[in-house]
Design a protein around this nucleic acid. Structure first.
Length: 522
RNA sequence: GGCGCAUUGGUGUAGUUGGUUAACACGCUGCCCUCUCAAGGCAGAGAUCACGGGUUCGAGUCCCGUAUGCGCUACCA
């Protein structure tokens, strides 16, 4: 049977990176098995669901290139089917109408309320099957319902027995019926509840493997009960460990802000493949020994990375290497430091991104740089045509010390525009420390004007010659030039920079007195 | 309260059926390279494998208990 998996987020906020990882694992599994990856928006909770969230989820998946097969499903559209299924179960005597008035729950203290209720129930020795409406004669139930009395529909869970399933990640899971209450299928206002909806939809969509967060592990027992009542085939389950905050609490938007939102990474200049690479390693690791032994993938056109000292895996490699049984059970901590711009997200993610920026094929990087420059009004069409060569060389030159795509428009700005800022510390350290540079630099400019061809080697010779004549270290000029030409204290080898900037711009910037009169000094 | 799941250096992980100095990646420190900063190269610090028992000639690996964390327990998803 073909594998069919789904990612089923509820649109009650941005796309959480933990959810994004679930989507990734589903996608990887589907692509590896030649199966289908489906997408379903679980907008059952109409109060909290928003179109904006749906859009953000779609955008996030698109950014990660986790394209789905078949039509997008909105769970709310299936509500009639969910209701019909519940009614069928009532008709078959597998579920019943509960006329108990709805309890008002304070949204804030739900957990506390649950614990309190459980405690008092335990004290009174109440069992889960004590609902007075459970065995109400059918006629009476029909009559009261027809009279318009509100009721919820509950599943009639058997008194004796246990549910059992093999979780691909967590192994055998068992639970006694005695621990499961008669769960509500339909609210008294007629709305289907989560556990019912997922099951019906998963059946409807022909899902063979349910891969989702570990927070659903114990709910799975309830869902199995519904599958059984419906007489449907039960899919395979694989639950994923959770991604936690540095203090091991749940990662949440309210507490942790934008670090948990996937679109943040797009907006802050991450490379999709780099983020995928980082994410996949949270809770999963490849079995490189199997590959080395030639047990897997020997007939593949892709030669996966076998080096255990290297964690860079391309999407193609991951499609071959991924396996559900290498997912592990313990939760992973997503490491970041709040209020520290240098460590705003996990260091490894940042490193991974930098690694991709400096090593990925240039042709794949160029369109991303283009988009970044364009967004900052730094893009010029000539880069695509006449100056294509120059553009490629410039990107190649500067990419090696960048961490995100943003750096191309920030630190890299001076390469693409004459309107750039001077870094204060760079000006102080490389220029103002030696006041005579104010005269020397224009003089250097004059020297360079005669250099032909204006390449790295020739510029270097001219600059060193001038430094020798003045009896100062070449480094003085090199660093000063770097600041004059790029506004920065750091950057690529300076002679390469001269060459890329070209004679005209180099000379002009060396002569410009701008940084000398800038704000910091006056 | 009940039930479930987990626990290897700061973080992510490796560690096949128990067997010599617990491996790798990120981060950190130092050195080399050098015009700066990275990258790269080299070296290094950092783990009594949550704790306590037990089985065994021998346990990170098996068993029991404890602790801690997380999850579920809802007419939320």
């Amino acid at each position: 049977m073909t594998v069919r998996v789904r990612f089923a987020p509820s649109p009650t906020g941005y796309l959480h990176i933990g959810a994004a990882r679930s989507a990734l694992f589903n996608w990887l599994f589907a692509r590896q098995m030649g199966g289908k990856f489906l997408l379903r928006i679980e907008d059952t909770d109409l109060q909290r669901s928003t179109d904006e969230s749906t859009r953000s989820i779609l955008e996030g998946l698109e950014w990660l290139e986790l394209n789905h097969d078949e039509e997008l499903v909105f769970q709310s559209a299936n509500a009639p089917k969910h209701r019909a299924a519940a009614e069928r179960l009532v008709a078959e005597g597998k579920a019943y109408r509960d006329f108990t008035p709805k309890e008002q729950r304070d949204d804030k203290n739900v957990k506390q309320g649950i614990a309190d209720r459980a405690r008092s129930q335990a004290a009174e020795g109440l069992d889960q099957r004590s609902n007075p409406y459970r065995d109400l004669p059918r006629e009476e139930a029909e009559r009261r319902a027809a009279a318009g009395e509100p009721f919820a529909v509950r599943l009639k869970v058997a008194g004796e027995g246990r549910t059992r399933f093999e979780d691909i990640v967590y192994g055998t899971q068992e639970r006694s019926y005695a621990e499961i209450e008669d769960l509500v299928l339909l609210r008294s206002d007629g709305h289907p509840l989560y556990n019912l909806s997922v099951v019906i939809d998963d059946i409807e969509m022909g899902i063979t493997h349910v891969i989702r967060g570990q927070d659903h592990l114990t709910n799975t027992h309830k869902q199995i009960l519904i599958y059984e009542a419906l007489g449907a085939r039960i899919p395979q389950f694989a639950h994923l460990p959770l991604i936690l905050a540095p203090n091991k609490s749940k990662l949440s938007k309210r507490k942790h802000g934008e670090v948990v939102s996937l679109t943040t990474y797009r907006d802050r200049g991450f490379i999709p493949d780099a983020f995928v690479n980082f994410l996949v390693l949270l809770g999963w690791s490849p079995d490189t020994t199997q590959y080395a032994a030639g047990l897997v993938g020997n007939d593949q056109e892709v030669q996966p990375n076998l080096d255990p000292n290297n964690e860079i895996y391309s999407r193609e490699e991951l499609k071959h290497l991924f396996s559900l049984d290498r997912i592990h059970k313990s939760n992973a901590v997503f490491n970041f430091t709040e209020n520290d711009p240098r460590h705003w997200t996990d260091d490894k993610a940042l490193w991974m991104n930098a690694e991709y920026i400096r090593t990925m094929p240039l042709v794949e990087l160029l369109p991303m740089v283009k988009a970044e420059l364009r967004a900052n009004k730094l893009w010029r069409e000539e880069y695509e045509e006449d100056d294509r060569d120059w553009f490629e060389k410039a990107v190649e030159l500067i990419r090696h010390r960048f961490f995100t795509l943003k750096d191309f428009s920030a630190q890299g700005r001076a390469y693409f525009s004459d309107d750039f800022d001077f870094d204060d510390t760079a000006v102080a350290r490389n220029l103002k420390k030696e006041p005579r540079l104010k005269e020397w630099l224009p003089a250097l400019a004059t020297r360079l004007e005669t250099v032909e061809p204006f390449d790295a080697a020739a510029v270097e010779a001219a600059l060193r010659e001038y430094a020798d004549e003045l009896g100062v270290k070449a480094g003085l000029f090199i660093n000063a030039s770097r600041t004059m030409l790029t506004g920065q204290a750091v950057g690529p080898s300076m002679f390469e920079v001269f060459e890329i900037m070209g004679k005209d711009r180099s000379v002009e910037r060396l002569r410009s007195g701008v940084p000398w009169f800038d704000s910091a000094s006056v």
